[in-house]
């Protein structure tokens, strides 16, 4: 009896260990991807979006932070500046731009909407303040702008 169970469970055992290794390597891979993106821009004084979700709970690749050094669009399509494969994002979801040192966000007609501090925004540009919570799709970002 014991022999049978042990023989069956040894396969389960091996498979579980390899699934563990796979998940760890996958998480590390996500880590490196975001590391390469960040390099070079991190020292400069641009505002950025900081991800609040835990990345290992998401099934797609997303960076820890996105630097807003110029006009940036976000969405699922590859022509966007920030491409995120969240199924709840629209192809062209939202846009960030700056005028006279003030940063604005506008929704580009997305299906599931964009929210700043839980208020839905439309195509009209909305100014962003340091610490604003931005929700798009399944993602929640925080807008960080160091006060000069």
């Amino acid at each position: 009896m014991y022999e049978v169970i042990s023989t069956i469970l040894k396969y389960v055992f091996t498979i579980v260990i390899y699934i563990f290794i796979y998940t760890i390597i996958r998480l590390i891979y996500l880590d490196i991807k975001s590391m390469n993106k960040r390099a070079g821009l991190s020292d400069k004084k641009y505002p950025y979006l900081k991800l609040l979700n835990r990345r290992d709970e998401l099934s797609f690749r997303v960076d820890e932070s996105y630097v807003l050094n110029s006009r940036k669009t976000i969405g699922r399509l590859s022509k966007n500046d920030f491409v995120i494969n969240d199924p709840f994002l629209s192809g062209n979801h939202a846009e960030f731009f700056s005028e006279d040192g003030i940063y604005y966000m506008r929704d580009l007609g997305s299906k599931n909407g964009s929210f700043i501090n839980n208020v839905k925004i439309e195509y009209d540009a909305v100014p962003l303040n340091n610490g604003d919570k931005i929700q798009i799709g399944q993602l929640t970002f925080i807008f960080v702008q160091d006060n000069r």
């Binding site: 055992f13 579980v16 699934i19 563990f20 998401l58 199924p87």
Partner: peptide
């Protein structure tokens, strides 16, 4: 498919290994 990763968190694997191992023991 959506968010399947929620169920294969590595720490669950470690717990599972221990459960299987100590069950056998």
């Amino acid at each position: 498919m959506k968010n399947y990763t929620r169920f294969v968190k590595p720490v669950y694997m470690v717990v599972l290994i221990n459960l299987i191992g100590f069950l056998l023991l």
